[in-house]
Structures are given as structure tokens and as C-alpha cells.
């Protein structure tokens, strides 16, 4: 059973790699976060992460509030970069995840304000995942650092598959529970989306 699961996941990963250039479709309805209106232009060289976040806001993205004790992390750019509004959230949030950070959003959609804090965190602090339904996987995927709780259909009763799914996450970045007919996966959007795709591949008839 585990071998079959591994095979399905590898096949799923290969399919994902083959289709990497095509991002998932944008979620319908209002976006989860306030969408920038101007391109983000970055010069080559080192850039403090907090400056990147501030520039995101300057382009019309959400206001950003930082947890007080964040380190002054940096990103390095080998060449100048121009990021169109629709791609800024993905770019900025990937940089956050590389530094072990995640976003919590104010409850309005699109959220005008986000909170940046370490994830996972051993210290008390605010973390408010957005609840998403099975048809909102693209929303999780479009926001690599946004904390979400995604409900994923799950009809399988084989507990070995579920354990395998949790171990395939590669770390304790997500929490998974099995609900009635579903899984609830909580964590940063990118990791959650990866687990959801793995769950779909493990379902009977999954690809």
C-alpha cells in the first residue's frame, strides 16, 4: 500500500513539475488579500525583507504589521526585477516562507491588513488561518505564506495512507486532522496545497 502511495505521489509530483509554468487559476470572487495596482520594481543587490514588504504596500498591496521581534532578514537579487501586480503576493510570500515567516490576514476580503510572524512558532502570538473549502485550493496555492485551514475531501478509511500523507509533508509545517468525509489541513498556503494535492492523488481514482 505504501509503495502504491509513493508511486502515486511521485507521479503526481512529475505531473506538477511538467505543468509548473502554468500557475493555478486565480480564485473566483474577491481575492484573499488586497491586490496591488502597480508593478513592483526591485534593483539588483540585497534588500531587507521589511523593505520588500513595505514596497509591496506601496504598490497597493495589503498594509503589513510585523511581530516585534522579527530578525532583519534580507533577500539577494542578482539582477533588477519587475513583478506585475498579480504575481507580487506569490513572490513576497515565498520570500517570507524562506525565512520561516507566515501571514495572518484581517477577516475582510480582500484583507487590507496582514500580520507577519514566525511559523511554526513556539511562542504565544496571534495566528489566524483563513478557512477555505475544497474548491479554494487555488487560493491556498496563490498565497504561499498565508495561514489557511483547507477542507479536503477524503473518503479513504486506510489509516496507513493518512499517515503516509502526513509524513510526506517534509516537516511539521502543517497539522492534519481527519474529519467526517474530509481532512482539515492547517498551515501556510503552499504547504497546505501540497498536502491537498497529495491527498487527491491518494484517493481512489486519483491521478
Amino acid at each position: 500500500m505504501i509503495a502504491r502511495a509513493l508511486g502515486l505521489l511521485v507521479a503526481g509530483a512529475l505531473c506538477a513539475c511538467a505543468s509548473t509554468p502554468a500557475p493555478p487559476a486565480a480564485p473566483a470572487g474577491p481575492g484573499l488579500l488586497r491586490m496591488p495596482t502597480r508593478p513592483l520594481e526591485l534593483a539588483a543587490g540585497e534588500l531587507p525583507l521589511r523593505d520588500l514588504l513595505g514596497r509591496w504596500t506601496d504598490c497597493g498591496g495589503p498594509d503589513v504589521a510585523l511581530a516585534a521581534d522579527l530578525v532583519d532578514a534580507r533577500i539577494a537579487l542578482e539582477r533588477p526585477l519587475r513583478i506585475e501586480p498579480g504575481e507580487q503576493a506569490r513572490y513576497v510570500e515565498r520570500a517570507l516562507r524562506e525565512h520561516g515567516l507566515a501571514l495572518s490576514a484581517a477577516p475582510q476580503r480582500p484583507a487590507p491588513l496582514v500580520w507577519v510572524a514566525p511559523w511554526p512558532s513556539s511562542s504565544p502570538g496571534y495566528a489566524q488561518p483563513v478557512s477555505l473549502g475544497p474548491d479554494e485550493l487555488a487560493g491556498a496555492d496563490a498565497h504561499p505564506a498565508l495561514l489557511v485551514r483547507l477542507v479536503v475531501p477524503w473518503d479513504t478509511t486506510d489509516s496507513a495512507l493518512l499517515s503516509f500523507l502526513s509524513s510526506s509533508d517534509g516537516g511539521a509545517q502543517v497539522a492534519i486532522i481527519r474529519g467526517p468525509g474530509c481532512l482539515v489541513v492547517m498551515g501556510p498556503g503552499r504547504e497546505v496545497a501540497n498536502v491537498a494535492r497529495g491527498a487527491a492523488a491518494l484517493q481512489p481514482g486519483g491521478s
Binding site: 473518503d155 478509511t157 502526513s166 502543517v174 497539522a175 481527519r178 467526517p180 468525509g181
Partner: peptide, 17 residues
Amino acid sequence: RHPTPLGSVVPGTSGAG
């Protein structure tokens, strides 16, 4: 839609956050 028995927390995944 899918009435199935309820399981429990998946081992090793409850520590996030």
C-alpha cells in the same frame, strides 16, 4: 456528502503552530 467514521489526529502533525 460523505458520511464516514470520524478519525483522530494524524500522528506527528499536531505540533504545528
